[in-house]
Every structure is written in structure tokens, then in C-alpha cells.
Nucleic acid binder design. Structure first.
Lengths: 239, 239
DNA sequence: AACAAAGCTATTGTATATATGTAAATTGGA
DNA sequence: TCCAATTTACATATATACAATAGCTTTGTT
């Protein structure tokens, strides 16, 4: 045993191997590598993508074994991902029957928009309280490409819109608030990648919110953020 | 095989067994029995109870096999329950390390109270919009026992307070809003079953909210609901 | 004696097997 | 031919088995 070690010690291949293993270890340890938390994380992301882009359609049943085979994993981590999606309102579970891609009726969509009003309104208020320059810059940057443009690219604007609303929450730094804001996904799904209202109308509203935040006017910031969502909601159902 | 069947067919014990099994089946089928959706549901409830009453302490590690054995189940449904608790902010998961009972620092509690302000404020507004008699009655009933009483039982009042805040959300009928309102648990946990402020102070505030709802004054209802929570938050941290 | 590295142990993450329940299919009777 | 009841097939829920890894312990070297 000892003799073997002596031999190995001066064996170049052995040394090389140790060095490599060491670095692999260090790389993993210090997190330079992609953090491989678990396999259910990528499953979750993939399924979410499939739901949002329509590969999996509302009302469709999810047969666990099929999807598991399709993704090349077992049912256990798939279940974990499905439970996360259930908590995000994207998947519905009927005990002993199965899981289904969720679909929303008119009332439910209204209810979701009301939640967004409450959450985004509060977010705008919090940002107005902080009034940080860096925050205002980030918000402005979303829409600055479209200012003074008389031919707005709808796809780009849609993406900017999504970024803006997501940023509004994240920039507050309020983690619990971000945690309960999973309705953004559903918004996207409901309107099918389009816009509820034309950029000409909403661009101004977005800047109204940003300006109120910049001026530190909490009440105005919240009011404008809410009105912005409310208008879209009312237009969706002309009520 | 067939012969055996004939013998069993006329065996009284066999017949009795079949009859019993049949009724058990029917009882289950028609739902006279407690609906046994799954075993993870009671596990979830039990764990929640254990966390809230302090049997499991903040920061404590949850060793799955231990708890599973203790509850007499396998790790699979336990995991399901733990994931649900993670989504409710009661349990924290560190990948490959384990799950821990969550503890909250000052900033996080403030953040949670801010969420409550947004959610409960919106709930009060929605109820003011509906202005249903039945709703107002239920809200009033929470506190009517304490009116004109100069010696309020603190335990009873604490319970009434919890019921009131929970009702405020549920009575809106907005399911998504109720889904994101899981911070009520944490409130209870944070203040340790006590009250942040004395009944003399909060009883009046509660009725201010209820009266605004009764009068259909949305703005006032939301304002009072928010102020009520904000005052407690400020007192908790005297900021 | 101090430190690094390898091995060990405990616990999590994943896969598979078993059990239980639901819905569809089939059979038998009117 | 239609209806009801039983059987069958399939999918989910739970349990168990296996694999991988984090942190501790031990060992060996300087």
C-alpha cells in the first residue's frame, strides 16, 4: 500500500489527475461551475416555457410518465417541478385524477389583474419612497429606444413592457413581494404575446409612472401604476 | 382454482368480508368518509401546526427520514408537504443540504407587513365595492362580543383578530388574492400569539374599516385597512 | 504539531416498484 | 338495443431502493 503510493507519487499521470480533480473540486466549490442544484429546476423551466409558448395547451392533461420519458427523467423530479407550477397557478391538480394545464375564465383573469393592481401599485409606491437614481435609470432604459420613434417595433415593445413590469417589482428589493408576483406569467399567456393596447397609448402611461417615482410622489406613482393596469383590464372585457 | 372459489363462496366469513368491503367501498365512493385526497395533506397541516406552535423551532434542520418515521409515512408525501410549506415561506430549502424552519430578520418582517398592506388594503376596497349585507354582518360579528366590554379577554380577542383579517380576504371571493395571502401565518408566528397593540386601540380601527365598507367608501376602507397594519409594523420596530 | 487530503458517514436527490383508485371496456340481462 | 354491473387497464400516490454529495473523521506528511 505504502509502496504503491510512493510509486504513484512520482507518477506523472497520477499527479496530473490529482491536480485536475483538485481544480474540478475548487471550481465546483467556489461556484464557477453552473450550480447544479437539482434536475427539477431545468424541468420546471422547460415546462413553464412549454406552457407559455403553447406547446402544452390549456386544459391539456399532463400524463406524468409521458412527459418524464420525453424529458428523459423519472417521475420524482418531474413531480417537484409540477408542484412548483401548481403553486404558480399555471397547472391545476385534481387529486387521484391528474394534473392539467390551467385555463382561466373571465372572472379569474379579472381577479388576477386586481392582484396585479395591488402588488404593482405598492411597488411603485416603494420605489417612489427610495427615489434612487440607479432605479430610475433602469426603468427609463426600458422605453428610451421608443421615444421620438414614429414606427415602434411591436415585438420589441412587448418585450420592453414585460421587462418594465417585472423590474418594477424586483427593484423594490422586497423579496416576499416578488414571490407573490407570479401573475406576470399569466398576463403574458392571456393576451398571447400581443399587447392589450397600442404603444402610443401606454408609452405615455409608463413615463407617468416613472416620473412620479423620480419626483418621489408616492401617491401619484401608485395611482398611475394602478390605472395603467386597470385600463388594460377594462379593455380586455369592456366592462 | 374454481373449486376453491365454490368453497369460499359458501363460506360465511368470506361472504361477510365481501359485504364489509363492499360497504367500505360504497362509503368511500359516496364520500361519507373523510375525503382522503392524499396523505400529504394531513402531513402538511401537522407540520404547519408544529412550526406555528414552536414544536419545530426557527433555524432547525428538518431531517426528512426522522420526521417521516415520526409521522409514520415515507419521504415522498413528506417532501410534497415540505415543498408546499416552502412556497408559503415557512420552510427554507438549501439544495443538497436540507430544509430548515425559516426565521425572519427585521427587514424581512417589514417586507411581509408591506405585502399585507397591499393585499388587505385591496381586499377592503373590493368589499366596499360589493357592500353586501351578509359580508358586513360577518365582519361585525368578529368583534361584537367585545363592544361595551371593559374587560376584554385577550385570548378571545387575538383569535377574533386573526379571524377578521382572514375573513377580509376570503370574503372578497378573489381566489388568487387569497392564494397570495399566506403571510397571515407568519404574522402569528412573529408576534408569538400575542397582540402588537392593545384591544382598546385596535377595536376602534377595526370598526373604522368595517364602517367604511358598509358605507361603500372604497378609498376610506383601503386607507383604514392599510393604516391599521402600518401602525402595528411601526410599533414593532419603532421606526 | 499543524495542515492537507482521502475516506467515511449521514442525508439528500433520483429512480423504480408496489398499491390504490378512476375511467373505460366488456359482459350479461331485460 | 339499451342499461347496469363487473372487470380490466391505466395513471396516480406512496413506499422503497439506489446514487451522489456535503461535512466530518481519520490518516499521513511536512
Amino acid at each position: 500500500m505504502y509502496g504503491l503510493y510512493i510509486i504513484q507519487k512520482y507518477n506523472l499521470f497520477f499527479l496530473a489527475k490529482v491536480v485536475i480533480l483538485y481544480f474540478v473540486y475548487k471550481i465546483q466549490y467556489y461556484g464557477f461551475m453552473i450550480e447544479h442544484t437539482s434536475i427539477s429546476e431545468p424541468i420546471y423551466l422547460r415546462l413553464k416555457e412549454m406552457i407559455l409558448n403553447g406547446e402544452l395547451k390549456p386544459g391539456e392533461k399532463i400524463v406524468q410518465e409521458k412527459i418524464a420519458e420525453q424529458l428523459g427523467v423519472s417521475r420524482t423530479p418531474l413531480m417537484k417541478a409540477l408542484l412548483a407550477l401548481e403553486h404558480e397557478y399555471l397547472v391545476e391538480s385534481i387529486p387521484r385524477r391528474g394534473m392539467y394545464i390551467r385555463s382561466w375564465d373571465k372572472q379569474e383573469i379579472i381577479d388576477i389583474y386586481i392582484c396585479r393592481e395591488a402588488i404593482e401599485g405598492m411597488a411603485a409606491r416603494l420605489l417612489a419612497q427610495s427615489k434612487e437614481e440607479n432605479i430610475i435609470k433602469q426603468l427609463k432604459d426600458c422605453f428610451s429606444p421608443f421615444l421620438n420613434s414614429n414606427d415602434i417595433d411591436l415585438n420589441a415593445y412587448t418585450e420592453a413592457d414585460e421587462t418594465f413590469h417585472s423590474l418594477l417589482i424586483k427593484l423594490t428589493g422586497n423579496a416576499p413581494l416578488d414571490k407573490i408576483y407570479f401573475f406576470g406569467n399569466i398576463h403574458e399567456k392571456v393576451i398571447g404575446h400581443g399587447l392589450v393596447r397600442p404603444p402610443e397609448e401606454t408609452l405615455d402611461e409608463h413615463f407617468k409612472i416613472i416620473n412620479a417615482i423620480e419626483e418621489g410622489d408616492e401617491d401619484a406613482a401608485e395611482k398611475f401604476a394602478r390605472e395603467h393596469i386597470k385600463k388594460s383590464r377594462e379593455l380586455l372585457f369592456d366592462q
